[in-house]
Amino acid sequence: MRACARLLALLLAFVPPAGAATRLDDSLSPRQRVEIVPRWVSESTSGRLSNEQLNALVAEVRQFEVRLNTAKYVGREAEIYLRLPVAIIGLHSPAGLRLEWRTRGRFASGSVRPGERMLLFRGAISQPVMEDTFDFVLHFDGRYIQRGLQFDPIYEIEILR
């Protein structure tokens, strides 16, 4: 057991080398699971809509507080990214989802598709917990999704110095 505890301590204290992306712990965030019900973007066709417009769905998650555990990185220069996994349960094509967000300013606003990542922050990590409030807008193509689609936005850090 003592060896196990030492191993755990080593793992917790491990700071990856510069340039390697490491997943950040976001379990401090107050809300852990959000269920959304998308709606059609266009209610009427009148012969003017493309297939993309016809099947466009949207859903919003407002005031979503994200808290990232950056305790291990205090004092380091780093970049923090938001990534979507390339494989998502219930998503038949990466073209079927785009996640867009606006923040209150601590992190940058942006958008990503599955398999992509977007920079949220670049600079010195000065706090053990970095937090911001996100307004997420989820854009779906109804042709490529099904009920039960679920995913975890991934927050990852890269140490610069």
Binding site: R23, L24, D25, D26, S27, L28, S29, R31, Q32, R33, V34, E35, I36, V37, P38, R39, W40, L57, A59, V61, F64, V66, G90, F136, L138, F140, G142, I145, Q146, R147, G148, L149, Q150, F151, D152, P153
Partner: peptide, 15 residues
């Protein structure tokens, strides 16, 4: 590792 995966967004009924 599993503990760091906290926030899940789930699509309920699709219209």
């Amino acid at each position: 590792v599993a503990d760091a995966t906290a926030i899940t967004i789930v699509v309920g009924n699709t219209p």
